[in-house]
Amino acid sequence: MNKLICFLYISITTLPVVLSYLLDRKYRRKIKLITEDDNKFYNQLLSVTMKNFNCKPHVIEKNECSENCSLAYQKIIQAFISSAKSSICLCIYIFTLKSLTYELIQAHKRGVDVRVISDQIMFETKSQRDNFSILSKNEIPYKLHSPRSIKMHHKFCLIDKDDPERAKMFSGSLNLTNQGFCYNFDNTVLTNNIYVIKRFSDEFEKLWNLF
Rank of each mutant, 00 (worst) to 15 (best):
M1E: 12
I5C: 02
I5Y: 08
F7P: 06
I10C: 10
I10P: 06
T13P: 01
P16N: 03
V18Q: 04
S20T: 12
S20H: 13
S20K: 11
Y21K: 10
L22R: 12
L23Q: 07
K30R: 13
I31G: 01
L33E: 13
T35W: 09
T35R: 13
E36L: 14
E36S: 15
D38P: 05
F41P: 01
F41D: 01
F41L: 01
Q44V: 09
S47Q: 13
V48S: 02
K51T: 13
N52E: 08
F53N: 07
F53I: 07
C55S: 11
C55H: 11
H58R: 09
I60E: 12
E61T: 09
E64A: 13
S66H: 08
N68L: 02
C69W: 08
L71G: 00
Y73Q: 08
Y73M: 12
K75Y: 14
I77V: 06
F80Q: 09
S83I: 02
K85Y: 02
K85C: 12
S86V: 02
S86E: 11
I92L: 06
Y93E: 01
Y93P: 02
L100H: 15
Y102E: 08
E103H: 04
G111C: 03
G111D: 00
D113A: 03
V114C: 08
R115L: 03
V116Y: 06
M122D: 03
T125V: 12
K126F: 08
S127Y: 12
S127H: 13
R129D: 03
L135T: 00
N138T: 00
P141A: 02
P141M: 04
K143N: 05
K143P: 10
H153R: 05
A167Y: 05
K168E: 02
F170T: 00
G172K: 03
N178D: 10
N184G: 08
N184C: 13
F185Q: 08
V189F: 14
L190W: 00
I194K: 15
Y195K: 15
V196L: 10
V196W: 11
R199E: 10
R199Y: 11
S201F: 11
F204Y: 15
W208V: 00
F211Y: 12
F211W: 10
F211H: 12
F211N: 03
